[in-house]
């Protein structure tokens, strides 16, 4: 099939970006979305032009590198699917596809579809961990974790840090990302000692990075390729409230 692409091109953070139109020719339905872009890029290189810069690595939906807004939806809008796992069989011959980077003040565009997501790392550095130095641990089975808690912690821990939640949110809020880590660690007995300092520090850092606030729209959970449930945010707010009451 043949497609028309409108792709955001931007040389660097300082320069102005713009949409450029490309034709994607002879695309096969079994190709992934990124393989379709590979085809376009190979052609651009052969023509002596710079290929479209986009981030990608594992191409199996787990590393969280890829991320682009496809026709207005982060990762293309298929439930539980990252851009790298989106396949061209979901498009039709003659379709026009618009491709843009994540848009958020805290995620400045670096080049074309690549944005700087290091704000996420700094949120984790502020407190998204359990302080257990190597060697301190007791026998693993000495800590019992009820299955339902372990499962709920795993649901939250599945976050791949791609940033689709921020891109989907009209406020560019990072609540789902931050709350997912807080829920993962807060649901486990090992995470209890630091539970309240963790939430305070991570939320402080999140605010400092320039992410917006949450107004309960729910676009983040709808866009999340790992289907992290929205209720992690309620849990984070509850922990934050308790932390305030406790004066943490």
């Amino acid at each position: 099939m043949n497609l028309t692409l409108h792709v955001w091109r931007q040389k660097n953070p300082q320069s102005e970006g713009r949409f450029v139109t490309y034709q994607a020719k002879d695309i096969i339905p079994d190709m992934s979305f990124l393989e379709m872009l590979d085809v376009v890029n190979q052609e651009l290189i052969m023509k002596g032009e710079e290929p479209i810069a986009f981030e990608h690595d594992c191409r199996e939906g787990i590393c969280g590198s890829c991320g682009m807004v496809i026709n207005g939806y982060p990762h293309g809008g298929h439930r539980g699917t990252t851009a790298c796992q989106l396949h061209m069989r979901h498009f039709k011959d003659g379709d026009t596809i618009t491709i843009e980077p994540w848009r958020a003040r805290a995620f400045p565009v670096m080049k074309d579809l690549i944005v700087d997501r290091s704000a996420f790392d700094r949120i984790i550095q502020a407190g998204g961990f359990i302080s257990a130095n190597t060697g301190v641990a007791q026998d693993a089975n000495a800590i019992l974790v009820p299955k339902q808690n372990a499962d709920a912690a795993m649901d939250a821990a599945a976050c791949i840090g791609c940033g689709a939640c921020v891109a989907a949110c009209p406020n560019a809020s990072a609540m789902l990302f931050t709350a997912a880590k807080i829920a993962h660690l807060g649901l486990l007995p090992q995470g209890q000692p630091e539970r309240y300092t963790r939430v305070v520090r991570m939320v402080e850092q999140m605010d400092k990075e320039g992410f917006g606030g949450c107004t309960n729209i729910g676009e983040c959970a709808a866009a999340c390729p790992k289907v992290i449930p929205l209720d992690v945010i309620a849990r984070m707010n509850r922990d934050l409230l308790v932390a305030k009451i406790k004066g943490v």
Binding site: F129, I130, A132, T134, G135, V136, A137, Q138, D139, A140, N141, I143, L144, V145, P146, K147, A150, D151, A153, M154, A157, H184, L185, L188, Q190, G191
Partner: peptide, 22 residues
Amino acid sequence: MAIIDQCVAQGVPFAREYSGYL
């Protein structure tokens, strides 16, 4: 064995039985 202990201490959500054991 120490690896599993360490990872559990860090909060790695390994699969559990209904009893809470790994």
